[in-house]
Nucleic acid binder design. Structure first.
Lengths: 297, 297
DNA sequence: CACCGAACCGAAAATATCTTTCATCCGTGA
DNA sequence: TCACGGATGAAAGATATTTTCGGTTCGGTG
């Protein structure tokens, strides 16, 4: 709503005020309407605006000319621009938590905003040295086990799916017993990754511990860098922790954060193993093609 | 971020990407021109834009329609608005694709940025009316089945986990046969949700179809609103489509987008069923507490 | 008070722009 | 190769904008 200086378009209201004295009565009515409700007027045709102001098309066009536009068409475009700017000006107001009676549109906006925030926090907080070390370990690993339970289990599977796609050997475990059983098979050069937001999930810590004790390179992806899980982790990747609210459980933001970390790991590994990763990715894409119907076009 | 008129607003570029696959060659040329230079195109008449893109007026109008506007006139208005916003909003900082030799810190930054972008696009492109209807259906459903394969399967599980947490009956299926077997058990009042980025995954379409034919309320979460899956969907929730690069497969951004939609569904349902959802959430939290060791440190 | 002229104004014609229709063209699959 | 269906653009048709032009009002003047 601020007026810009030399910038074209500038404030229409100001221009209207300046030029008002040199306008005839009907033209003033038009100018006023335009200044008061740019958005509304932008939606109108010459005829519409003429009727609204109780004048004629000719007068509207004359007014547009006076305001410095070649014709009404261009005034209208400028109006649309102005409206859009005003619209975006009164932006955020997303500061509050999601309330029980928020309309669904607000829910969408707030969730998107919060997840964006989570991503930014995570990216800012990540330790690239540890990340790089984890990537190096993964790229060279004979096999990789990933542990995760509940929501984190899905992240574990996501990572596994990706690694498999580029030809690495990876397994996700959400059954603690099987996880431990498998963990003891690991040996130096292998990698074990535990994903847990709280860092205190025993079912995930135990297999990591087993892997750790058998000499595998262990990685913890957690929101609590001082939690028990880090005891057995050679490398710790910290995810961001945002306050959780009644309607937005922690699982939601921790998942977003964990997924970003996982994506970074994946892309990092794909870079390191580009020679084999690129063809593998292409191949998996090919293989899937026939599972899709002919497509929409 | 809705715009003044009925027309869906948000990022035009995102919409172009989403709809591009369903466009013909000439229309793609027009769409591309519009997406690349909104300001320039806003200054052109139909004829002008037709000449610029080497097509005809008819094609330009057709493209405008496909993008959701009643005609070229309105597209032009929207373009003017967009141009104004870009002008004031300054440059969106163009990031290049992730390169094979990018240092890990750049990878983190680029991935975070792209996922944020995906979230914004998704939020802008989502149809809140459909979303609201889906929420209503879910909140009232006797049971809910969710179909998803591969990466989308994880999203399906995520949704299921969340719904279960607030006391709803939900199942995720990734086995196509079992999915169909279960789908035929559905009846009016039940809800079936298919999650597929391409919208052409036969293994996911079949169960949805079965559910559809048995009278369940069917929902499709897809990046292609014109794809086969929507044939059997009462409600369609569109996820955003970002260009995929060699090191960043489509699965990555579609997952981010799908998860946002799923989160919106969940929060929406939690709002509707607040009386039962809040205690249920609290209870599940309690139940998990004992799985965690005494705490940090 | 009647008259005059100038500016104002809007109806309608003229023009530009947008939309629709329809015949043609091109690619595709049998 | 042929037939088909969708994509495409030329041109007709519909709207919107601009221009023209004559009527009207208002202030000044004899």
């Amino acid at each position: 709503m601020k007026e810009s200086f030399g910038s074209p378009g500038g404030s229409l209201a100001a221009k209207v005020r300046t030029l008002a004295p040199s306008m005839t009565r009907s033209m003033q009515r038009v100018a006023e309407a335009v200044a008061n409700d740019p958005a509304g007027c932008a939606a109108l045709t010459v005829t519409g605006l003429a009727e609204l102001t109780g004048t004629s098309e000719a007068t509207v066009v004359r007014t547009a000319r006076l305001l410095g536009y070649p014709g009404y068409r261009d005034l209208r475009l400028a109006l649309a621009g102005l409206a859009a700017q005003q619209q975006s000006g009164r932006a955020p107001a997303i500061t509050t938590d999601i309330a029980v009676d928020d309309p669904i549109a607000d829910v969408v906006a707030k969730l998107a905003y919060e997840e964006q925030q989570t991503l930014a926090d995570t990216a800012a907080g990540i330790d690239t040295v540890q990340l790089d070390a984890a990537v190096t370990a993964l790229a060279a690993a004979r096999r990789t086990d990933v542990y995760g339970i509940g929501a984190s289990g899905l992240v574990a599977q996501d990572l596994t799916q990706k690694l498999l796609r580029i030809g690495l050997i990876a397994h996700a475990h959400s059954d603690p017993h099987l996880a431990v059983t498998n963990a003891v098979q690991l040996r130096p050069g292998d990698v074990a990754i535990a994903i847990t937001h709280s860092g205190s999930t025993g079912d995930v810590i135990e297999p990591l511990r087993a892997a750790f004790e058998h000499g595998a390179t262990t990685v913890a992806i957690t929101g609590r860098p001082d939690s028990p899980v880090t005891q057995y982790a050679d490398l710790v990747l910290t995810t961001s922790t945002s306050r959780e609210t009644e309607l937005r459980p922690a699982a939601m933001s921790s998942r977003t954060s964990q997924l970003l970390v996982v994506d970074c790991l994946f892309v990092g590994v794909a870079q390191r193993t580009y020679e084999t990763a690129a063809p593998a990715l292409a191949a998996s894409y090919e293989a899937l093609a026939h599972r899709h119907r002919s497509g929409s076009r």
